[in-house]
Amino acid sequence: GNAVQEIMIPASKAGLVIGKGGETIKQLQERAGVKMVMIQDGPQNTGADKPLRITGDPYKVQQAKEMVLELIRD
């Protein structure tokens, strides 16, 4: 079955996860074999953390989460 996890991405790092024209998030999805969606909560909310929703095989979702956390670590 499918697992769904959401991680909060600091607004300052959201661009890093998505990448230029969505390149990075696309590569992450391909590498991890999961679906990732950045939940954009309207323009008034630009400074707030953005939830990144990861959907897929539970094991792969976990892997994907680690990859993203690695990416946004300072």
Rank of each mutant, 00 (worst) to 15 (best):
1 G>Q: 03
1 G>R: 04
1 G>A: 08
1 G>F: 11
1 G>C: 05
2 N>V: 15
2 N>L: 15
2 N>A: 15
2 N>W: 11
2 N>I: 15
2 N>T: 15
2 N>R: 14
2 N>Q: 15
3 A>F: 15
3 A>S: 15
3 A>T: 15
3 A>R: 15
4 V>G: 05
4 V>H: 14
4 V>M: 15
4 V>T: 14
4 V>D: 09
4 V>S: 04
4 V>C: 08
4 V>I: 15
5 Q>L: 11
5 Q>I: 14
5 Q>C: 13
5 Q>P: 01
5 Q>S: 11
6 E>A: 06
6 E>Y: 03
6 E>S: 04
6 E>K: 05
7 I>A: 01
7 I>N: 00
7 I>R: 00
7 I>Q: 02
7 I>E: 01
8 M>G: 05
8 M>P: 07
8 M>E: 04
8 M>C: 03
8 M>T: 06
8 M>Y: 05
8 M>S: 06
9 I>W: 00
9 I>H: 00
9 I>T: 01
9 I>D: 01
9 I>S: 00
9 I>K: 00
10 P>A: 02
10 P>W: 00
10 P>F: 00
10 P>S: 02
10 P>K: 03
10 P>I: 00
10 P>C: 01
11 A>W: 04
11 A>G: 06
11 A>I: 07
11 A>L: 07
11 A>E: 06
12 S>W: 05
12 S>F: 04
12 S>Q: 08
12 S>N: 13
12 S>G: 13
13 K>L: 06
13 K>A: 07
13 K>M: 06
13 K>C: 13
13 K>V: 07
14 A>Y: 10
14 A>E: 12
14 A>N: 09
14 A>W: 10
15 G>P: 05
15 G>Q: 11
15 G>K: 14
16 L>E: 09
16 L>H: 05
16 L>A: 11
16 L>D: 09
16 L>F: 13
16 L>V: 14
17 V>M: 07
17 V>R: 01
17 V>K: 01
17 V>S: 02
17 V>G: 01
18 I>T: 14
18 I>N: 08
18 I>A: 15
18 I>M: 08
18 I>C: 06
18 I>Q: 09
19 G>N: 03
19 G>S: 03
19 G>L: 01
19 G>V: 01
19 G>P: 01
19 G>Y: 01
20 K>T: 10
20 K>D: 15
20 K>W: 04
20 K>V: 11
20 K>Q: 14
20 K>I: 05
21 G>K: 14
21 G>C: 08
21 G>M: 11
21 G>S: 11
21 G>F: 09
21 G>Y: 08
22 G>K: 05
22 G>C: 06
22 G>Y: 03
22 G>H: 05
22 G>D: 07
22 G>P: 03
23 E>S: 15
23 E>A: 15
23 E>H: 15
23 E>L: 09
23 E>I: 09
24 T>N: 08
24 T>R: 12
24 T>W: 04
24 T>E: 07
25 I>H: 03
25 I>W: 04
25 I>D: 03
26 K>P: 02
26 K>G: 06
26 K>R: 12
26 K>I: 14
26 K>H: 04
26 K>N: 07
27 Q>G: 12
27 Q>C: 08
27 Q>P: 02
27 Q>N: 12
27 Q>S: 12
27 Q>E: 13
27 Q>W: 09
28 L>M: 14
28 L>N: 02
28 L>H: 02
28 L>I: 11
28 L>W: 03
28 L>F: 04
29 Q>P: 01
29 Q>R: 05
29 Q>H: 02
29 Q>A: 12
29 Q>K: 04
30 E>S: 13
30 E>H: 12
30 E>A: 10
31 R>F: 05
31 R>W: 04
31 R>A: 10
31 R>N: 08
32 A>L: 12
32 A>G: 08
32 A>C: 13
32 A>H: 14
33 G>W: 01
33 G>V: 01
33 G>H: 06
33 G>L: 03
33 G>M: 05
33 G>R: 06
34 V>H: 00
34 V>D: 01
34 V>K: 00
34 V>M: 01
35 K>M: 05
35 K>E: 13
35 K>R: 13
35 K>F: 03
35 K>Y: 03
36 M>G: 01
36 M>V: 03
36 M>L: 08
36 M>E: 01
37 V>T: 11
37 V>W: 09
37 V>Y: 09
37 V>D: 11
37 V>N: 08
38 M>V: 13
38 M>P: 03
38 M>G: 03
38 M>I: 10
39 I>S: 12
39 I>T: 07
39 I>F: 15
39 I>C: 09
39 I>Y: 07
40 Q>G: 11
40 Q>W: 07
40 Q>F: 11
41 D>E: 14
41 D>T: 09
41 D>K: 13
41 D>P: 09
41 D>V: 11
41 D>M: 07
42 G>K: 15
42 G>F: 08
42 G>S: 14
42 G>L: 05
43 P>E: 12
43 P>R: 12
43 P>S: 15
43 P>L: 09
43 P>A: 14
44 Q>P: 13
44 Q>S: 10
44 Q>R: 10
44 Q>K: 15
44 Q>M: 13
44 Q>Y: 13
45 N>R: 12
45 N>M: 09
45 N>F: 14
45 N>T: 11
46 T>C: 09
46 T>I: 09
46 T>L: 10
46 T>H: 09
46 T>W: 05
47 G>Y: 05
47 G>T: 12
47 G>Q: 11
47 G>C: 09
47 G>S: 13
48 A>T: 14
48 A>Q: 14
48 A>Y: 11
48 A>F: 12
49 D>W: 06
49 D>I: 05
49 D>S: 08
49 D>M: 06
49 D>L: 09
50 K>Q: 14
50 K>I: 08
50 K>M: 10
50 K>C: 09
51 P>A: 12
51 P>T: 12
51 P>S: 11
51 P>V: 13
51 P>F: 08
51 P>H: 11
51 P>L: 09
51 P>K: 11
52 L>Q: 00
52 L>S: 00
53 R>G: 02
53 R>D: 01
53 R>L: 08
53 R>I: 10
54 I>V: 05
54 I>S: 02
54 I>D: 00
55 T>M: 13
55 T>S: 09
55 T>I: 11
55 T>H: 07
56 G>S: 00
56 G>L: 00
56 G>P: 00
56 G>Q: 00
56 G>Y: 00
56 G>D: 01
57 D>Q: 12
57 D>P: 12
57 D>Y: 04
58 P>N: 05
58 P>G: 10
59 Y>M: 10
59 Y>E: 14
59 Y>N: 15
60 K>P: 04
60 K>F: 03
61 V>C: 09
61 V>D: 00
61 V>Y: 00
62 Q>W: 06
62 Q>D: 13
62 Q>P: 03
62 Q>F: 06
62 Q>N: 07
63 Q>G: 09
63 Q>A: 12
63 Q>K: 13
64 A>Q: 01
64 A>L: 00
64 A>W: 00
64 A>P: 01
64 A>H: 00
65 K>N: 05
65 K>W: 02
65 K>G: 07
65 K>R: 12
65 K>A: 09
66 E>A: 07
66 E>S: 10
66 E>P: 02
66 E>F: 04
67 M>E: 07
68 V>C: 04
68 V>M: 05
68 V>L: 05
68 V>I: 11
68 V>P: 02
69 L>T: 12
69 L>H: 08
69 L>Y: 13
70 E>V: 03
70 E>P: 03
70 E>R: 09
71 L>H: 06
71 L>T: 08
71 L>E: 07
71 L>A: 06
71 L>R: 07
72 I>L: 14
72 I>M: 12
72 I>R: 02
72 I>F: 05
72 I>P: 02
72 I>Y: 03
72 I>C: 15
73 R>N: 13
73 R>V: 10
73 R>A: 15
73 R>W: 11
73 R>I: 05
73 R>L: 06
73 R>Q: 15
74 D>F: 03
74 D>M: 04
74 D>N: 06
74 D>C: 05
74 D>E: 09
